[in-house]
């Protein structure tokens, strides 16, 4: 149903997000994505995570098999990763915060968890915000919009698009190669070195298959006049309407508002992240 999950899906255009130009969707979330890389507090990513997920829930159609991925995965990731990420990077100040868990001499501090939470929230929020265009735009529309409005040469756009088709094929081919190598007794050995060796063995057959396939695809596209003219007929245009500009403006305004006020208004309710 979407660019990220299933690039070819057709959309029912019932929900408003699917009617927005894909380029507008991308432009709308771009400032939020940049901001999320930079912020260090807890409130800002939390607000973005909630807003993005809410927007998708209300204004987009998410096919049933993808609902867990869209609505549960970001939050689950935030909670799980928060427990471990802090262990890598907690600054010395964390040691002065209350102890949550004690295992013999080892202590897990509240500050450690908060440092982890700040990072995992940012990653989770990035993912949730990226899902807004991700679940709303279809692959062909992104290519069409990019060709029509960004002057991306259609040869580049459609070639990239054809490359999408390779992905499931490779997945299947890789599974077969792994089974074949296992049968031949290549599964032996543990540890990273054996793993690297195993994967190195998959590369040659996988590449050989990929090159052959790519060659055939190229021939088949040439045989159907791909690249014959500087432009090609587009049956549907993906117009940029005033409403798209409005959507982008609104999204940017919301982003600015969150960045300006969320730390101050909500920050008071949240514990300070050590070292932030």
């Amino acid at each position: 149903m979407s660019l990220l999950l299933d690039p070819w899906a057709q959309h029912h255009r019932s929900r408003p997000l699917h009617r927005v130009n894909p380029l507008a969707l991308m432009a709308a979330v771009l400032p939020a994505l940049v901001a999320l890389v930079l912020v260090r507090d807890l409130a800002t990513p939390l607000v973005f995570l909630l807003l993005a997920t809410g927007l998708v829930a209300v204004c987009a159609h998410v096919a049933r098999p993808h609902r867990v991925l869209v609505f549960v995965l970001p939050t689950a990731f935030v909670l799980l990763a928060s427990l471990t990420l802090g262990l890598w990077s907690a600054p010395a100040e964390a040691a002065t915060t209350p102890v949550l868990v004690r295992l013999g001499p080892w202590q897990y501090h509240l500050g450690t968890w908060l440092v982890g939470l700040a990072t995992s929230l940012r990653l989770g929020a990035l993912f949730a915000v990226a899902l807004v265009p991700g679940v709303s735009a279809t692959g062909p529309d992104v290519v069409r919009a990019a060709v029509q409005h960004l002057r991306v040469p259609y040869r580049v756009g459609y070639t990239a698009f054809a490359a999408f088709r390779f992905v499931p094929r490779f997945g299947h081919e890789l599974a077969t190669i792994r089974a074949a190598h296992r049968v031949r007794g290549m599964a032996g050995g543990r540890g990273p070195l054996a793993g690297v060796r195993r994967w190195a063995g998959y590369v040659v057959p996988l590449l050989a298959g990929a090159l052959r396939h790519a060659e055939r695809v190229a021939l088949a596209m040439d045989a159907r006049a791909f690249g014959a003219h500087p432009t090609r007929t587009e049956r549907h245009t993906v117009p940029l309407r005033p409403s798209d500009a409005g959507f982008v403006a609104a999204a940017w305004a919301v982003t600015a508002a969150v960045l300006l006020w969320a730390p101050d208004l909500l920050g008071g309710l949240m514990p300070a992240v050590p070292g932030a």
Partner: peptide, 15 residues
């Protein structure tokens, strides 16, 4: 117009 042996390799689009 050509039709090839491997029909998978000639599919470019989604429908």
């Amino acid at each position: 117009a050509l039709v090839f042996q491997d029909a998978d390799a000639s599919v470019v689009t989604g429908t």
